[in-house]
Amino acid sequence: MLDRPVEANQPARGRRALRLGVAGPVGTGKSSLIALICAEFAGELSIAVITNDIYTDEDARFLRSAGVLAPERIRAVETGACPHTAIRDDVSQNLLAVEDLEHDFDPLDLVLVESGGDNLTATFSPALVDAQFFVLDVAGGGDVARKGGPGIARADMLIVNKTDLAPYVGVDVDQMVRDAEAARDGRPVLALSRSDPRSVAALRHWLSHTVDHFRSGSLHPQDPGPMAPHTHGDGTVHSH
């Protein structure tokens, strides 16, 4: 019955836009990160955005009002109160929205897909995105990176956001980044603040590199996994 691959009705990788997920808890700055990327790459990359809101289209409205991208390039997918489902186990409506944007604004270079801000466990399926950010912020507490989770441990890039707020919330950014690096086994961590040009340059560099990597056909989507690896009393370690 399965006489053709399930991805047969998607454009071949490398010819379509890079699909980049932005996940992370509510309030950590996912929409602001997207606005920053749109502003940084304006005139350089053709970009479109999909938001997945728990309540309708709040994030889409924020992004449209930010004025960093033509409003018609920002679309909201409703998730029926299941933001996990919409980006992970049933990505149908998101894929249709991505394909619509690719069709309507052909050729697109980058589609950013924002998850509904939910909690530490929601990550994107590799069937929906080619790579993903996981966003934390210093105001959420310096210990969050240490708590781990699939996004923190294995997203393609972990952002520790709003570092400019660290002095006001009593968080040691360097320690938070070291904790995150320890949890990530060598995967990149970026301490980011919109008001810190060096961190914004590092974001630019990573994203440009990822776009090149995707276009060369050598970017293979990775699943951060449904749960963090954990140990059992008998010493076995696994990630389900």
């Binding site: 409703e78 029926g80 049933d90 149908s92 409506q93």
Partner: peptide
């Protein structure tokens, strides 16, 4: 109900 057609977005 878990058939992946996006029906979880509808009531």
């Amino acid at each position: 109900g878990r058939l992946p057609t996006g029906a979880h977005t509808q009531s």
